[in-house]
Design a protein around this nucleic acid. Structure first.
Length: 581
DNA sequence: GCCGTTTTCGGCCCGACTGTTTTCAGTCG
């Protein structure tokens, strides 16, 4: 039972209660519990095994949900959840995924027409059977049919790199509308979440109508879902939703704050405002008693009005940032300009497409001071991994290039490294004598993902305790939207890393982002150093560093928490610390 | 169901847009 499985049960309880028409705040409690559990850095199972009482220290988990968690861990299910499920047919919950269909409509459709799933709904809407129901007409039918079609077409969330590639041109396009002052992306994009549900864009301008018209006419638009004076929504041809909000300059800060989210953060901030006798909306901060406008022009003003310093967007997940802000203890987050090198680079020798020198020259152009060449090892045959002989040859080549750079008085160093495979039993894929000749050893799992949590945890810990491995690459093996992370007790792995001065990689490749934000925070709490690496297979991919840096920021990491913000000499010193437990 | 610098009871974020309505409910973010 992973956290995600437990969270799913609570989400379903919330949905079912909502369909039943239960108290909305009770519904919210269950949904909130799901969100909180999904965001925990540690498995609920491990927490309960250590000390059950700790559960109720987690905000949003009280007596009732505590009991249900314990039951779920013990029996694999929750009897309350099961009872609710019995009240409705199994396909009913999927109806909520149809845009424009919420709990009230689900209930109505089920009770009046016996609609039990999406397929029933599609048939009924096509046959014009919905229009007789209260509050539903022809247009509702057409919208439902369209939404079902959209649901079948594209699913769920987009990787941040993909979303950005659509958002950036759209922002440029909107800037060309008449009399526009400013166009700013907000939402999960501004928070740099690893996946993005939709693109949120804010516009300040003289007149709204021309901007909204231009937005609706964007060539990439498939459907205009809503078009109003202040807010419009479209679906792009790739299925991505984009919202544009037009607002007054005077409300820009409040709107940016509101539209950036997260929802959980906003709820907490608004609750705070309320307790101070204020009301916070996207139009500003107002005094509750007489509706007097207090602030809203800039985000700084908004936070100041509720007694807080400005909080960086990446931290706004209600994971302690408000409490930290209160105490003036917000982290000074790492920035892209702090990065001085990259410890995970492939070349043509394995499965990359540039030479060592090409990669080094590109890194120099970026202002880096060092890179490590880290090819796959022989076990990864598909990537043309190197055996000991080829690696020894590459060591010689790197030394030659370094000598050449030195002769040219270039202050840049190529570190001799490898991305050595960590085999199923935790042993390394290359001979120890050869590994000891390297400056840096990155260890990674590329096979046998289907182990149990204990097996995989021990596999990584064995590599960490080898005294040879410096960095554990992409620690969970996840590929966003393609492959789940393998089961792992991350806390145990990190504690082992801490004991052995081993560094955890934050792989910046946008499909990986592994460590994720939550793991980064865990690393910080445990005191493990993180390396942000691009895993570049060609020189352009070094630009992916930004996805890594912003994920690190989401995980509260500061410059000093990151290995590759340090000058080369410090790096070499830290690498030497290893194996001296 | 959760929670507490007004509270262990009585609150719980706030507003836009749509489609159906003659003033509003439902959905969404």
């Amino acid at each position: 039972m992973e956290n995600a499985d437990i969270a799913k049960i609570f989400y379903e309880i919330a949905d079912l209660l909502e369909i039943k028409g239960e108290n909305p705040f009770r519904v919210r409690s269950y949904r909130n519990a799901g969100i909180v559990i999904e965001g925990l850095p540690e498995s609920v199972k491990a927490i309960v095994e250590r000390n059950e009482k700790e559960l109720e220290e987690i905000p949003g988990i009280g007596k009732s949900i505590h009991e249900k968690i314990v039951e779920i861990l013990k029996t694999g299910r929750c009897s309350y959840h099961q009872e609710l499920l019995k009240e409705f047919p199994s396909g009913l919950l999927e109806l909520l995924r149809v845009q424009g269909v919420g709990p009230k409509k689900v209930k109505l459709l089920y009770e009046e027409l016996g609609i039990k799933n999406i397929s029933d709904l599609e048939k009924a809407a096509s046959a014009g059977k919905l229009r007789g129901l209260p509050g539903m007409g022809e247009k509702t039918e057409a919208n439902i049919l369209k939404a079902i079609k959209g649901l079948k077409g594209s699913e769920g969330r987009f990787k941040i790199a993909v979303a950005l590639s659509y958002a950036e041109p759209l922002v440029e396009y909107l800037k060309k509308a008449p009399d526009v002052f400013d166009v700013q992306p907000a939402g999960s994009l501004r928070r740099w979440k690893d996946t993005i549900g939709d693109i949120d864009i804010l516009v300040t301008c003289k007149k709204s109508a021309p901007v909204m018209d231009r937005f609706a006419a964007y060539p990439d638009v498939d459907t205009v879902v809503a078009k109003g004076e202040t807010k419009s929504t479209v679906i792009l041809k790739n299925g991505l939703q984009a919202d544009v909000r037009v607002l007054d300059k005077k409300a820009f800060g409040a709107a940016l704050q509101y539209f950036t989210g997260s929802k959980q953060h906003n709820i907490a901030i608004r609750d705070r405002a309320k307790r101070m006798g204020l009301k916070l909306s996207e139009y500003g901060v107002f005094r509750e008693k007489d509706d007097k406008w207090i602030a809203g022009e800039s985000e700084e003003d908004v936070y100041k009005a509720v007694g807080l310093p400005w909080i960086p967007a990446e931290l706004r997940e209600n994971r302690g940032e408000i409490e930290a802000a209160e105490k003036n203890k917000l982290p000074e987050l790492v920035e892209i300009k702090d990065i001085k090198g990259d410890f995970h680079i492939h070349t043509k020798e394995s499965d990359g497409s540039n030479t060592i020198e090409e990669m080094a020259e590109y890194a120099m152009k970026k202002g880096y001071k060092y890179i490590a060449i880290t090819e796959h090892s022989k076990a990864v045959g598909i990537a043309h991994g190197l055996d000991e002989k080829r690696l020894l040859k590459q060591i010689e080549e790197i030394e030659k290039i370094n000598a050449k750079f030195e002769a040219l008085n270039l202050k840049f160093k190529i570190l001799k490294g490898t991305e050595v495979d960590i085999k199923a039993d935790g042993s390394l894929d290359l001979d120890k004598k050869v590994l000891e000749k390297l400056d840096i050893v990155v260890g990674a799992v590329h096979s046998r993902f289907n182990m149990t949590e204990d097996e995989m945890t021990n596999r990584l810990i064995k590599a960490i305790e080898s005294g040879i491995v410096n960095i554990i690459a992409h620690p969970t093996g996840r590929l966003i939207a393609a492959r789940e992370p393998y089961p792992l007790n991350m806390k145990k792995v990190m504690e082992a890393a801490k004991r052995n001065n081993v560094i955890m990689e934050l792989n910046a490749y946008p499909d990986r982002l592994d460590l994720n934000d939550i793991h980064c925070k865990l690393a910080k709490d445990i005191g493990v150093m993180v390396a942000i690496s691009t895993d570049s297979h060609n020189k352009m991919q070094m630009e992916n560093i930004r996805f890594g840096v912003y994920t690190a920021r989401r995980g509260w990491l500061e410059k000093e928490d990151i290995l590759n913000t340090r000058p080369l000499n410090d790096v070499l010193k830290m690498l030497k610390l290893q194996g001296q437990v």
